[in-house]
Design a protein around this nucleic acid. Structure first.
Lengths: 229, 229
DNA sequence: ACCTGAACACCGTTCAAGT
DNA sequence: ACCTGAACACCGTTCAAGT
């Protein structure tokens, strides 16, 4: 799975991309009043879309500002006119991915909802090799995300204290993102020798949620007792 | 904390390292019968030690094969004569770190032992910026480690089933390593706005272990019931 | 404002040549 | 066997110059 850049790979570069066409071949449209026609000129959204495509194919490591520009049909400098650094671009991609996770929340009970959300997140991030890794190291630059808010609402409603909630959210984030980044991807991993990685992922998730429930209930009881005279 | 390579940093390189001295200044010793005197000539162990030093100072990103060679007082090619790739070097460093985690296990009960082990791991890995991140993505190339075996023994002894154990170990790994890599490092992170990151780390750990205990006990009872006529 | 072409200062990795 | 010097094929980022 992992490409070790060594003797075995004579040239890392793909056979050769199509030469930089003088723009995306698209019907010339009447310039809209906002001055930004869909597809005419580079837009942040278009760059992010192209970046996602590349990452899905060759991972974050394979995403190169040059290759990105090539796919967009522009010179390297043009891309840099819209995005300051590769780091910024990955941040945009990350936010873009998170916005897709919380669209549909399945399940009735809070834990079912939470679980579906997390499985969803892992599935989406897992599709983009190297992204989980990046997200992990840059949590602080990525929140608050929509997903974050959604999870928060679910937990507050069932009576989680701020402290327990924060702990659970942190644990969930690192477990899910880490699994998507490292474990789930390598299905043949020997760490969890035995079977089905997805089943193991679910087991761990259940474990975490169970622990959170127990602690939450203990916390609740303690509060009720304190409230009684 | 994070160095964004941009305008603000005119030159990423440090002021200038000492010029490559014609070898580590050390007393010439009688060549031992195994042909490998301590410090004479490069050894894998010495390279790993130097690499750890650099990573501790400037992170995995700052670890450069050139800088490493410079610190070792040899040419770039010399380092490559002992280590095939940077990837391999990081693997060696990772294993080296893990070997230090499981040296002392504190606590009497299994969960206390487990917790001390995990806190220990997080402390060690947290000292080497970027390592957690690397370990995360290369779990499969790093096990079985001593730490892995130690944890396994603890869990088997208290009666964890293979399945529950694997799930817990996976969850622990990603939680602890992820936290060390992303959350714990950025003490000023807004994600866990509020307070003490270390306390939150402990809360999450407790949550995870609690969940594991509950599931383990349920599993045990089910087995006992099945055994009864 | 937006884009091109070309450069700068790095990387990891390889390799002929020396001892 | 072990090491040096120098190269190769990349990177991310910048920037004068064009339109």
């Amino acid at each position: 799975m992992r490409v070790v850049p060594s003797l075995t790979t004579p040239s890392k570069r793909a056979p050769r991309r199509e030469p930089p066409s003088p723009k995306k071949a698209r019907a010339p449209e009447i310039p809209a009043s906002n001055g930004q026609v869909d597809g005419a000129g580079l837009s942040e959204a278009e760059i992010v879309r192209a970046a996602r495509e590349i990452i899905a194919e060759v991972g974050v490591q394979g995403l190169t500002m040059r290759r990105l520009s090539n796919d967009l049909g522009v010179a390297l400098g043009a891309t840099y006119h819209h995005i300051a650094t590769k780091h910024d671009l990955l941040l945009l991609v990350g936010r873009n991915l998170y916005s897709e996770v919380s669209v549909f929340v399945e399940g009735g009970t809070w834990d079912a909802k939470l679980k579906s959300l997390m499985m969803n997140q892992s599935a989406i991030i897992g599709r983009y090799p190297g992204m989980g890794n990046f997200l992990m190291t840059h949590v602080d630059e990525l929140v608050p995300s929509d997903l974050n808010k959604t999870v928060r609402e679910i937990l507050v409603e069932v009576g989680f204290s701020e402290r327990e909630m924060t702990a659970l959210m942190g644990a969930l984030f690192f477990y899910v993102t880490g699994m998507s980044a490292g474990g789930l991807a390598a299905a043949t991993a020997k760490v969890f020798r035995g079977r089905n990685m997805l089943a193991l992922f679910e087991d761990g998730l259940d474990m975490l949620i169970t622990g959170a429930r127990v602690r939450m209930e203990v916390d609740r009881k303690a509060k009720r007792r304190a409230a009684r005279p």
